[in-house]
């Protein structure tokens, strides 16, 4: 995956558009997880994601929300385009980050 630095010849706006198109699969993944969380009333913990362009397959496992036991404080409602990051961390883990509206 390209790093944002590699687009240094682009304007901020062009860079933003490039970044959006590159990161939108991750954003779409977050939006999908929020939708599934809301409609299935579940909390997810483990994720297996394969991304080639748009997410090709995603498997998320978790359990039904138990208000007493989980006592969730906030309701994830929407994936925003703020602080979008897709990066590989030590150990080979990939992080797909966006700020979530609650």
């Amino acid at each position: 995956m390209r790093s944002t630095e590699s687009g240094s010849a682009q304007s901020d706006s062009e860079l933003g558009n490039w970044k959006l198109r590159t990161y939108f699969p991750a954003l779409a993944l977050h939006a999908t997880l929020i939708y599934e969380l809301a409609t299935r009333r579940m909390l997810f913990r483990d994720f297996q994601v394969e991304i080639v362009g748009e997410p090709q397959s995603t498997r998320a496992t978790g359990e039904a929300v138990d208000t007493q036991r989980h006592a969730p404080a906030v309701e994830p409602n929407g994936a925003t385009m703020t602080d979008l990051v897709v990066a590989q961390r030590a150990g080979g883990w990939w992080v797909a980050q966006s700020v979530i509206d609650i």
Binding site: G16, L20, A28, I34, M81
Partner: peptide, 23 residues
């Protein structure tokens, strides 16, 4: 909001709109 933020952000260049912030 989720659906239209994405669609509008992607469509902005086609509308000739230079977004200073995708949000």
């Amino acid at each position: 909001g989720t659906e239209y933020l994405r669609e509008m952000a992607l469509a902005a260049p086609g509308h000739g709109i230079d977004l200073p912030d995708p949000e």
